[in-house]
Amino acid sequence: MRSCLAVLCLWAFPLVTLADAVHTIEVINDTRSSIDSFAMAPAGSGRWTEVSFKTPMQESWFDYEFAVKVQFRDGDGCFRDLRTMLSDGRRVFARNFNLCQYQSYRPGTYFRNGHPGSRILP
């Protein structure tokens, strides 16, 4: 009986590890505007998790040329949709961003050569 329990625990361990995957991404502000918030969702899901960069006085402290590391824990894989809200009202979207391949994201840059692209909306 104990050997069956040990085998079951060893079998389930990789599933628990996958469920608690930690992803870290560095958001680098190259937009020439302040970033009010940054949100991430599993690709195509619409389940946004938002990080606000506004102070209680409604002013953003995430200014141009600043960088912030965002860390989160989940088991939804590598591909994410990213949404950046700028203080001037613009929204920047990047679809299917691969967190396992890229450790940093610059919302003001259009990526080329097969990298995920950002789309800026008014």
Rank of each mutant, 00 (worst) to 15 (best):
Y64N: 15
F53M: 09
I28A: 09
D88C: 12
T55W: 00
Y64I: 14
D74N: 15
A41C: 00
F53K: 06
T84C: 12
R73S: 12
A67G: 12
A67S: 15
F79K: 11
M40E: 01
H23V: 02
Q71F: 02
R73V: 13
E50N: 04
N29P: 05
E59V: 07
E50G: 00
W61P: 03
I25S: 08
T31S: 11
G46E: 05
S87A: 15
Y64H: 15
T31P: 01
G44V: 00
V51S: 06
N29S: 08
F79N: 03
S60W: 05
A43K: 07
S34E: 07
K69M: 12
T49Q: 06
R73L: 06
L82I: 10
A67E: 12
E65G: 00
A43R: 01
L86K: 11
W48V: 11
S87W: 07
I35R: 02
S60Y: 09
F79W: 03
R32K: 15
D30T: 15
A39N: 00
R47N: 14
K69I: 12
A67Q: 13
S52C: 10
D30F: 03
F66K: 14
Q58P: 00
T84K: 07
G46F: 07
H23M: 01
D88A: 08
D74S: 13
A43W: 04
G46N: 02
G44S: 01
R47Q: 14
F62L: 06
R32T: 11
S60C: 07
V27E: 04
F79P: 00
D76W: 12
M57I: 14
D74T: 08
R47V: 12
G77C: 04
E50D: 10
E50R: 11
K54W: 03
G75R: 00
S60I: 03
D36T: 15
F72V: 02
M57G: 10
D88F: 10
H23F: 15
F66V: 02
D88S: 11
H23E: 04
E26H: 05
D74Q: 09
G44D: 03
T24I: 01
T49V: 13
I28T: 04
E59L: 13
S37M: 01
L82D: 07
G46K: 01
D88T: 10
A67R: 11
G46M: 07
G46V: 07
R32Q: 14
S34N: 12
V22R: 15
